[in-house]
Design a protein around this nucleic acid. Structure first.
Lengths: 242, 242
DNA sequence: TTTATTATTGGCTAATCGCCACTATTGTCA
DNA sequence: TGACAATAGTGGCGATTAGCCAATAATAAA
């Protein structure tokens, strides 16, 4: 994108109503792939910020969306091809400078999704890509999306310390080692093996569903688990990690 | 308000833009007075829901408000006369049925404020009143404000269990007994005295600033405290209560 | 059989909570 | 002036849960 074409676009943009802000929804979609935490970004095909990478998002369809959560879900599915096991609101950011067009408000959501079911769909569309989160820090994203991503990332870290959030990024069933790895990647901290297992097992949030090959293919087979019914909302009384 | 005048109002309402939702900010303002948890409500003077009690709130002033947090603060001050020591975002609710006029979105904030500095101002305006929270449950509020209040109340309970939120509803300095009472009212649970004191004192979130008369005027004088610098954001590693 | 590799458990210490009885300080009142 | 009522504050034990780290278990490959 060139500076001048954006200027031209801005000049031609003429909001009819000046007393109502633009409202949109943006989603930070997280997954785990190849032992790394990744985020889905889409390349903007339109001004403003044409050509920049951005969080998936868009406007409410007043005719079709019953509520904003549905808007977020619709956008999520349109970019990944599938629904996500976790989609929740993070925060709403609104001010007069985040969008060059106008006073603008966005409600930020975060989603967790296993990698596999999304891979084929996303490779087919070339405007969307999974980025390792560290790589995004070097990128200049559209609007204030770098800050939005930081907000979602923080929420993810914090919530992982007292919930079982990471069960939503794994394909099922999973071993405790895999689950621990997921916790560690989402929290960005190493966790102590025994403490981790004790915590999860004592909480009755998992049900054993057999045994499988170990992580990495070598060594003792691991017990495999799935989330127990209703465990998604489990709250630990103590935070984990330090 | 009469059914027919609301009907007439709705018939005459004609939004110019159909593809953008209404956006507003609402605030659940909590205080403690006479040993009770109270919430500020305002009586609506305009349609829709004319004559109903509602949470304070309103629209963004695109000319004056740099961001939505400022919008919330402006509304808060206009109803209470003073700023609040705690104002934070709770959640954003948006759907096609919460406002009879149009698809509508609101960002809900909650505020905590000591009672005394607000009393005079609020008694002077007769469209605003502090309601004990239990009384509000019997009331039919405007729009979906009963649900919004429930959301804010839940957030208040939850956060009180792992933060020092209640320091913001007390005038300073305060005794530990007063602070415990505040915690109990905000959490809606009885707390154990020794555990409470140990928790607060060990956390280094308070500084002693003298001694004063006991709670109720009788008995041994109590040590008085103020929040220590930076203690507002203290997070306990364990939740309290039970 | 040995070894490498991953999974799982044992067991001690420390922090923090629930519980509850006990002590401390003040004013009141006979 | 000496009990007593009322509120503030402490002592101390058992339970839960985290950190630590070493030991044991199961499997495949050498």
């Amino acid at each position: 994108m060139t500076q001048s074409s954006e200027q031209a676009f801005l000049k031609s943009y003429n909001p009819k109503e000046y007393d109502t802000p633009i409202y949109s929804v943006d989603i930070a979609i997280f997954t785990l792939d190849q032992g790394r935490l990744k985020v889905l970004l889409v390349e903007r095909s339109k001004h403003p910020f044409k050509g920049f990478w951005a969080l998936p998002g868009g406007f409410v369809d007043l005719k079709k969306d019953p509520d904003i959560h549905t808007t977020a879900r619709r956008k999520l599915i349109s970019k990944t091809g599938v629904d996500a096991p976790l989609l929740e609101q993070v925060s709403t950011i609104g001010n007069g400078h985040r969008d060059p067009r106008h006073w603008s408000i966005t409600t930020l959501y975060m989603a967790l999704i296993p990698y596999a079911p999304t891979a084929e769909f996303i490779e087919a569309v070339n405007e969307a890509r999974w980025f390792p989160i560290e790589e995004i820090e070097q990128l200049q994203l559209a609007f204030d999306h770098s800050e939005l991503l930081k907000l979602a990332r923080e929420r993810l870290k914090n919530k992982t310390a007292y919930t079982v959030l990471p069960i939503h990024v794994l394909k099922r069933p999973f071993s405790l080692t895999q689950l621990q790895k997921a916790f560690e990647l989402l929290m960005d901290t190493a966790l102590e093996k025994k403490s981790f297992r004790r915590r999860l097992l004592n909480a009755n949030v998992l049900k054993e569903v057999g045994e499988g090959i170990p992580d990495g293919g070598k060594g003792r087979p691991a017990a495999l688990y799935e989330p127990a019914d209703g465990s998604e909302n489990h709250l630990f009384v103590r935070v984990f990690g330090d």
